[in-house]
């Protein structure tokens, strides 16, 4: 897979933004009497702060970024760069102390001047922010309160770090330096204003009404939505959206789900949701007529983003939803390219959309291989899991030319990716999105 020019340009801009504070250092006359380690510590601190400030951007779900990078990659970057930023931030005081132990006396909160104290508290809060995020699941912290605190703490940390810079007043002496230290945080925080203010306000004007709740196999439910007073959003098959069910779009309690309906069907959206967690268990109780808000579409999963002579889909359980949207869309478009679906389910009765998939086999050039974990005695098809031997047996000779889309639980993805590689599929043709956002 080659990176597009647009992707490279965005990455170059991102790198420039990370290191932009270093430019501030060079504005104005060169200060006298500062040794290498002190300057080095300051530069690392600036980069750490810049990296932290830029964290507001990936989680703001900016539409132009979400069409370039897969959402799970964006969140992965958010998590990984947070840890890196903490490393840079903590290196700043540590190097200062090691290079000049005299500095350590400033870290006594009772006697410390505010210019140092603000930096110490900011660093401590950064440690708490990132530590609580990394250990959230282990500490069994509930997602929603954590997320709310996470957002507020992030802003406080950023403000304290800026107070530290302005109070130390070393690289803020020149008016241009001060201006840049104001402009950069405005750029970082603009992402929050967009995500928490402008975007929900725009969504408020575009509500959806729940038209029906349909039971599906394997404890899943399909919600069908129609736009109220607007045309409704358009999406590409394989994409997903955040749903606010009977809640204001300003409410942070929104949940990501793949579209399962055809992208060619205008003014009608469907989401198929399996009862897995606290929220998904309540889906079946929502009554037709309920008000919903849909934020999206997001994601780069699906054939519209990866052109190919034919497609192979690999689904596990409710992971069929984005693939179902793709199959329905391709059928509506009259697509004649060869398609294969490897579909893993617990047993024959739990095959979600079983009947409709049989219908789609007639409308499309589609071959379906069901793989059942607990097959009944008369079952003639594949049993167990989607393994390298199952793939090798069914995949055509020209398998290396096809594009592969996989959606399912994480263990399945981890097992099937190497199986595909073993079966002779180039990994650059394998696309999978893991919906592990938090």
């Amino acid at each position: 897979m080659k990176l597009s020019v647009r992707t490279v340009l965005w990455l170059a801009l991102y790198l420039f933004m990370i290191f932009a504070p270093l430019i501030i250092i060079f504005i104005g006359p060169r200060p006298a009497g500062r040794e290498f380690w002190r300057e080095f510590a300051v530069a690392l601190g600036f980069i750490g702060l810049s990296l932290m400030g830029l964290q507001f951007i990936p989680t703001a779900r900016l539409p132009f970024l979400c069409c370039i990078f897969p959402m799970d990659t964006i969140y992965f970057l958010h998590h990984a760069t947070s840890v890196v930023s903490l490393g840079f931030v903590l290196a700043h005081p540590l190097i200062l102390i090691f290079s000049n132990p005299y500095v350590a006396q400033f870290f006594n909160p009772a006697t410390s001047p505010w210019r140092v104290l603000s930096g110490v508290i900011a660093a401590a809060l950064a440690l708490l922010l990132i530590g609580s995020s990394v250990l959230r699941k282990d500490l069994k912290v509930i997602y929603e309160p954590w997320r709310m605190t996470h957002g507020i703490l992030s802003v406080i940390t950023l403000v304290l770090a800026l107070i530290h810079i302005f109070k130390v007043d070393y690289y803020t002496a020149m008016p241009l330096q001060r201006l840049l230290w104001i402009v950069l945080p405005i750029l970082w925080l603009a992402a929050i204003v967009w995500a928490r203010g402008i975007k929900p306000a725009l969504m408020l004007k575009k509500p959806y009404e729940l038209k029906e709740v349909r039971p599906e196999r394997n404890g899943s439910w399909t919600l069908a939505l129609a736009p109220v007073g607007h045309e409704g959003l358009t999406f590409k098959p394989g994409q997903f959206a955040w749903l606010a069910v009977e809640r204001s779009p300003f409410d942070i309690r929104q949940h990501p789900f793949s579209f399962s309906s055809s992208a060619e069907r205008k003014g009608w959206l469907e989401f198929t949701i399996k009862e897995l967690g606290d929220f998904t268990r309540t889906v079946k109780e929502v009554k037709p007529g309920a008000r919903l808000y849909v934020e999206g579409p997001y994601g780069t999963f699906g054939p519209d983003f990866h052109e190919g002579p034919g497609y192979v889909f690999l689904a596990g359980g409710v992971g069929i939803t984005p693939i179902m949207s793709t199959l329905r869309t391709l059928a509506d478009r009259g697509d004649k390219r060869p398609l294969m679906l490897f579909y893993g389910s617990p047993n024959w009765d739990d095959v979600i959309y079983r009947e409709e998939i049989e219908e789609l086999e007639k409308r499309l050039n589609l071959k379906v291989i069901h793989v059942l974990e607990h097959a009944h005695h008369e079952w003639q098809g594949e049993k167990g899991f989607i393994t390298a031997s199952v793939l090798d047996y069914h995949l055509p000779e020209d398998r290396a030319n096809l594009q592969y889309f996989m959606c399912g639980p994480l263990p399945m993805i981890r097992a099937v990716e190497p199986a595909l590689q073993k079966a002779g599929v180039p990994m650059s043709h394998v696309h999978s999105e893991r919906y592990e956002m938090a």
Binding site: F36, V42, I47, P70, A80
Partner: peptide
């Protein structure tokens, strides 16, 4: 696949961060 690029990007950020900081410090210090 994108994750591999993401890992490389993170490695680049760490390496560039340290190198550029050292460079800036070298130029500024006296």
């Amino acid at each position: 696949m994108m994750r591999q690029y993401a890992m490389r990007l993170i490695a680049a950020i760490i390496a560039l961060g340290i190198i550029l900081s050292a460079l800036v410090a070298q130029l500024q210090a006296r």
